[in-house]
Design a protein around this nucleic acid. Structure first.
Lengths: 239, 239
DNA sequence: ATCTCTAATATGTCTATACATTTGCTCATT
DNA sequence: AATGAGCAAATGTATAGACATATTAGAGAT
């Protein structure tokens, strides 16, 4: 049944250990993993190196393998999804659908999605809340072929999860973050004062094959929301 | 002499190929690399997987190894440095030093740098320009031990490069991005109108040993500046 | 008690091989 | 000409070892 490779199984075991451990704590050596799982060292090593590349643990030659001194969110960079990043902050995400239906494509959205401006498309506009406080207005445009997704309950679920159930996995995103004064409608929805500011995020998301999935503009209440990110200078990952 | 591992040599060879190749172009198979370099397949594979993890190439089981369809800047995430990111946008970065000297530590800066609030520290405040247009006011705080760096010419150079010359390599950064209305001083320096908006970035940078290097707050003219980033969902890197 | 050297341990690199799984092409059959 | 079977090639997973190099703890000598 379980057709997962052995090294994935070992990596999951290590993830559990890391989740319960303190930073700097020692993890099993390669040899211990070999014995415990009955695998060769190269297999154990593949599991450990996977997590090392995610910066979840650090290997010190001659010394051992240790839980990374500062715990890092699993997905580097920035949130690919409001739902996930909100939960990571310890809050409960929810949504209110403002609009859902056919829409005429704007020029930038058509270009980003790589389809003709005359192509049918669906707009899903949602108010995103964290612990019931309005945080952002989100404007997602998807090609009409994927309209079936709208049947799902998107009040609590995420569009990403819905995409994944159809076998298209959000893999890469191009994002631009800026700021501007809020429009009247945004002030009303986000409960902002006059002169209120929104953080703007324009994002195009691609699936595992590099095909565009969605083009999303999100406008966050700047007084209640900041992006946080962990950045690495990523070069050779060994030594 | 050359004590570099074989797989690094092979990876460098592939980097050259990729630099000259078009996206989607086919790269040598594992078997070809084995023959060319006289190594076993696991060694060739280690070289290829290194670049696959950097998203420079893609492996397709049963098919082959290909130059990544969209070329990605090597450093993921976001700019670690204004100088570098400005050059990446095809503009010429420069700076005007506004203030440089001892400063009393603020609470958040002391906490971020992991030093006592009474510790001596140096403030370097600069106006950052791109093609001579003012883009941001940057407020960098570094522990006083590193004050020697200020002798360098920071008008065109970057603080990062100066750090690297002392053997401390900026490796990891925690960043938070938000927005607020500009102060009077910021409006003057950045040539913003009344009600002008600044994008705020608060960043702590760590060296290769995890020791804090600097704590920087940067305030960008929102009407002229956006952050752009390429984000990956980084999980198991195989399959 | 302190210092030094050694041995054990841990990770880094590498070999040679085996089988599994996916993809794409060739060739024979229909 | 279209279809399908089969084969070759490519990557994925895994083994069982070997030697290199860095670290640390401990034994032994001073």
């Amino acid at each position: 049944m379980s057709s997962a490779p052995r090294y994935v199984e070992i990596a999951d075991y290590l993830r559990d250990l890391i989740a319960q451990a303190d930073p700097g704590e020692r993890l099993p050596s390669d040899a211990e993993l070999c014995e415990r799982f009955g695998v060769s060292r190269m297999t154990a090593r593949q599991a450990v190196m996977t997590l090392a590349n995610e910066h979840l643990l650090e290997r010190k030659r001659g010394s051992g393998t240790f839980v990374s001194s500062r715990r890092i969110p699993r997905a580097l960079g920035s949130p690919l999804s409001f739902s996930v990043s909100t939960r990571m902050r310890g809050m409960v995400p929810s949504s209110r659908v403002l609009r859902a239906g056919p829409v005429a494509l704007a020029e930038d959205a058509a270009a980003a999605l790589g389809i003709a401006i005359t192509s049918p498309a669906i707009l899903l506009e949602r108010l995103r809340l964290a612990d019931a406080v309005p945080m952002a207005v989100e404007h997602a445009v998807i090609p009409a072929d994927d309209a079936g997704l709208l049947d799902e309950d998107l009040t609590f679920g995420s569009l990403h999860a819905a995409f994944e159930r159809t076998g298209r996995i959000p893999t890469r995103a191009l994002a631009e973050v800026g700021a501007r004064t809020a429009t009247k409608r945004e002030r009303d929805l986000l409960e902002l004062p006059a002169q209120g500011i929104v953080l703007t995020e324009v994002r195009t998301i691609f699936d595992q094959n590099g095909a565009p999935l969605e083009h999303t503009s999100t406008f966050y209440a700047a007084e209640r929301y900041v992006f946080s990110a962990v950045l690495y200078r990523d070069e050779g990952q060994t030594q």
